[in-house]
Design a protein around this nucleic acid. Structure first.
Lengths: 150, 150
DNA sequence: TCACTATTGACAGCTACTGGCAACAGCGTT
DNA sequence: AACGCTGTTGCCAGTAGCTGTCAATAGTGA
């Protein structure tokens, strides 16, 4: 049983911590639940509910259970979502070093940056308008350098 | 015929310019079209397609004609829309002194400011990330001063 | 007034969810 | 290891916010 296919998935420990948190909150770690969490871990970046259904083999024609799992993970603070333009919400696990987003309205390209990178911008806005801006749920929208010059 | 009810609506001249622009582009100024433009003029601020249907007496149960009129007005550069949070798009006529928006994610309050007010923020973003941000279509989202202190 | 055709209202369809419900399956208990 | 409580699932229906199709209507120039 040392078959490589049998080795635990990457970052198993962190995944397991999610399951521990779920159980601690009185939730059950079902097969679909586990698949969703694993798919979020495996994803390269923010991912749609539709894509999660595809990745997990859950009913693509009706991703309501995917949404319910995501809702639960979000309520626990384990996952969150971002609205990148007009498409569906994109979900991700919350980790250390949270990201914020810039979105190009023309080409659709999204750039993620570490939250502190935007602190100067945030402070400027707060000083002038009293708003503490966050670009983790709704991004900064505009034109990227490529679309500006092109 | 000097009955006050017969006097032209407020800002009649500007409205008429919209109709001239529509005709110049080969469009017809129909009654529903006129009603939509007048409702946009009359509205206190950005207004939803649903509300426009209500205000004009157009079929509320199916605002597709309202959307087609808005689409036409937007393609002419006469109207535009903003996404204030998770609700429907809000439409407005394009005038002089364009507005940009800040939205409070908690209380839903939207603040509109003249575009130049955000130039410092915009320049800071462009210098650091190469993006030229616009907050007229998607607002800056965060927490307003009231929600921060309360 | 006529004829051409843009525009309308009605209807169907779509995406992205949200809610209801009976059957199923975790998980603590025995 | 079986039991049973109840959280969770899949399925189905429903909703919001649009978008597409089409025959009938109504602006507009001739």
């Amino acid at each position: 049983m040392t078959d490589p296919a049998q080795t635990p998935p990457l970052r198993f420990r962190e995944i397991d911590e999610v399951f521990v948190a779920l159980r601690a909150a009185g939730h059950r770690v079902t097969t679909p639940c586990r698949l969703v969490v694993e798919a979020l871990f495996a994803a390269a970046g923010p991912i749609s509910a539709q894509q999660l259904a595809r990745d997990t083999g859950m009913p693509e024609s009706d991703p309501s259970s995917v949404y319910r799992n995501l809702e639960r993970l979000e309520s626990l603070g384990v996952a969150r979502h971002v609205h990148l333009g007009h498409g569906p919400s994109l979900y991700m696990l919350v980790g250390s070093g949270e990201k914020e987003y810039l979105l190009c309205e023309r080409c659709g390209r999204a750039t993620s940056v570490a939250a502190p990178e935007l602190d100067a911008v945030r402070n400027g806005i707060e000083k002038k308008f009293g708003y503490r801006a966050s670009f983790s749920h709704f991004p900064i929208v505009g034109l990227c350098s490529r679309c500006l010059s092109g």
